[in-house]
Every structure is written in C-alpha cells, then in structure tokens.
Design a binder for these strands. Sequence first.
RNA 1: UCCUCCUUAGCUCAGUUGGUUAGAGCAUCUGACUGUUAAUCAGAGGGUCGUUGGUUCAAGUCCAACAGGGGGAGCCA
Length: 479
Amino acid sequence: MKRTEIKHALQMQESEIEINVKGWVRTKRGSKNVAFIALNDGSTIHNLQLVVDLEKIPESALANIHTGAAISAIGILVPSTGSGQKVELNVHQITLLGAASPDEYPLQPKKHSLEFLREKAHLRYRTNTFGAIARLRHAMTFAIHNFFNERGFYNIHSPIITGSDAEGAGEMFHVTTLNLENIPRTPEGKVDFKQDFFGKEANLTVSGQLEAELAALALSKVYTFGPTFRAENSNTSRHLAEFWMIEPEVAFFDITDDMDLAEEMLKYLIDYAIEQCPDDLAFLSKRQQDEEKNKKAEERSMELLEKLNFVRTQPFERISYTQAIDILRNSNYNKKGKFQYPIEKWGADLQSEHERYLVEKHFQKPVIITDYPREIKAFYMKQNDDGKTVRAMDVLFPGIGEIIGGSQREEEYEKLLNRIKEMDIPMESMWWYLETRKFGTVPHAGFGLGFERLMLFITGMGNIRDVIPFPRTPLNLEF
RNA sequence: UCCUCCUUAGCUCAGUUGGUUAGAGCAUCUGACUGUUAAUCAGAGGGUCGUUGGUUCAAGUCCAACAGGGGGAGCCA
C-alpha cells in the first residue's frame, strides 16, 4: 500500500478511508484498552495520532515501539474523539521498521537544551525545533532562487576551489594533495606548490563575488548561492567556518539600486516564510517566547511573527557612515560613557555595540549604512569623489548585526589598480579581474547575504550553529 | 585570539561557612488505570560529582593545570 504523508493525511477532507503512514514515534501513551502513538514523518511539524485498540492488536505487537522507533501503520482515518486533533488513525495493522532502544536512544519526549542537541547533531533533525528549521531552510533556499528567477537573474556556479588568494574577505583554507608528512621544498625553503595538484597554491573560496562580477559584465544580472569558507578563528554565535552566501551582482547598478535590491529581497524572503511556513514559524515563536520568560524584561525581544511583520512593512533607514558617527557621538549613550568604545574621531570602524545602538535603540528598525571610510573597506569598492569614502553599504538587522555587506564596485581601471597597489595585494593572481576594467567596463554593484544570518533572523534562533545542520567551527568537526 | 561563566544520574538542575550513606523533577523498568495529548497514580533501578595534581584530619564544595561547553569581544556574512 502506498504511503500517505502525514501532512496530507492531516488535511484530508474525506473520512473513513484506509491509509498507510510511516514515520518515527514521538511518544507512546498506554492504558488498559487503548494505546496512543504520536507519529511524525517530517512532512510537517504536526504529528498524526495513531489509536491502537488493544483488543484487536495484542500489546506484544507494541512492545518494541518506543520513542524514536520507525513504524508503518495501516488504519482508517477518522475524525478524532479527543480534543487535541481533528483526525486520527484507527490502526488495524502495525509494523516495526526500525527499533530504537529506550536505554540508548538519547532523545526523550521532553525539552532538550540546544547545547545537548548540538552533540547529537545526527539525530536532532527528529526534534520539532530542528525539523522546523530544516523546512524553513529549504523554503528560504527555494525562495531565493524564485526571487532572482522572477527578476531575470541568472544563477552562476562560482568555483569552490580558487587560485586567487586575495579575495580580501579573510583567512583561507588550503587545498592540497601534497604529502603533509614530507612537503616538497624549493631551494629557498618554501613550499614547492609546483608539485601540488594544480601546480600552484589553491584555497577554498571565501566569496564568489569576483567571479560573479565577470558574469555580470556579460549577462547583466547574476547571482551566486553557494558555500564559502573562512579559516578565521572566530568563536561567536554569528560566525561559521563554512557558510552559505547569496551574492547578486548587477551591471549598470549603482549603490542606490543595490540597496533597493537588498531591501526588496529581504522583504520578499520574509513574506515567503510567513506565507509558506506558518506552522513552523508558530512553533518557533512559541519556543522563543518560552525562552524569553527566563530573560530580564529589558533583554526580551519582540515576538517572532511580530518582528518579521515589523521588518517587512517598515522602510529601512538609510544613513551615511558620517551621519551614523554624528548620531552616535551626540547620543546620550556616548555622553554618559555607556559605550565600551567611545566615539571619538571619524574614520574608526563601528563596533557591534554601536551598530546595535543605531538599530535597536535609535531607529528601532533595519538600518543601511553607506559611504564608509575607504581605509576600513575592501579594495574593489567604488571610490567617492571626496577621496575619503567608498560606495559601500551594510544592512544591519536587530539582534543579528550585519546581515548584508555590499558595494558599488570600482569600474575604472586606473583607480582599481592604484588601490590594489596601495593595499599590497599580489597582482599576479588578479590579472583576469583587472582585465574586465580594460574591456567594456561599466558601473556595477552587488552584495553578499549570509544565508545562516538570514536563517537566524527568520527562525528567531540565537546561535548560528543551530540553523545549519552540521556547523563547522574551530575545533569542531565531529559530524 | 582575548575576557567571562559553566561542567553533579540518560536529560534539566539543587547541593548551606569543607564534615556521616550526594538529592529532586523528567526519562527508563514494573504495576495500576475505559480516550490519552510531553497522560496520570504507586514502586524500583540508575552516580568513580569533566580529567589530573595539590591544600586539609576530612573535598562535589578550596587552589592549579588540562579538556569540553556557554555568553561577550575582535575578524566578517
């Protein structure tokens, strides 16, 4: 008999029909005459209640059915006589597919800490929280492709392995087939990469941006959506060594077009989550509200759906770095010395506490900061005429901080070349990037959206290790 | 990498100024229960108190190192 997914079973209008469901047992409750099994198959956060009449099915058939076991059940779908659900399955045949020893199966029908579940990452998909996150992660992936496809963007597969070591976004992981026990050396004593697989030094990419720019300068509107790798020793709830990034790149776009695109995309994605995943969001909202009860009143954040709706409907505030510095310098926080790093002079990078003040206290909505000092930004950003700033833009979100970083790119060959020299970036590996500025260069812009940071915002989770199935962080590679 | 906190039963935690045999709730097992909703009720089993070393008549409790984890900072997405 063909399997019916629980998501569909729960939505069926006709009653009194025979169906076969398969899934994993969440709880089993028994009394003398009847046993109840809550079954979940991942198709939805909701369980189907199986009702087992112990006069028809011997209790011995249920003996090895415990929390975590996989079963198949055939029965008649009927309106429920209990109050917790609309329909339930009157089971007349039940088969154990895979047992889960109650002595060893670590997940119990109770609340577990996220820290505990990180150590059981191979099983945590089976919890309501991680099931909901997995479904939302899929929905957001799909929505991103949808968003760009609807607007005529082409998806570009930028390479994972790169020969460029100057993408300017952080420390890189080496890729090599050299024998690490016996590394070949040049006469000068350096590693002889000529003997390596590619005949030169290779790394995992930190960004698909440079390749996306090449594509944009031919196809006009492109985006990448792939894994990126950073070997930074970052130990925070907002950083991963392996994370997914969305990087649109558009020819003939200036910085304002770029900001418009970023804002439209983020709002589209929030819309999509609210429309397509109401049950999972409702669960995560309730989860978050339970967590909030343990916090002090002033640390509590907005309810998840309220927060999503709020961000969806508010225009993002757009200010320049210079305006941001003025606001911060004149803020009561600064005057009362509440900042750990007081605002002193123009030119310093904004600290997390400053970004949080602007987003969460001053404007109380997402903020886009533009035109940062050139000294604190990457080499490829378009230089403004003032000689001090570049056309960069960062989108800051409440509770997350920087969710998007982008810029209009420097399209003038001489200016880009000078900047590369100023910043001591090795030019040999960048010749192909520079050539795009020699042949038919045009103004263009793009940005990078951290997919897991988006997931933090959408799910209301607090730690980035919980919105990716198998997080890669320093000293952590168990799964 | 820096600062800070934590590590006691399968899980979440309590454990007094260092002092007999280390506790609770949930989970598990056994029994009871005519339909439960993370069922309920009764009983049982379950611990080298993260590891190593030190102080002390005496260490879960004090000190040190190491390991693992949380929160914050930097780097950024």
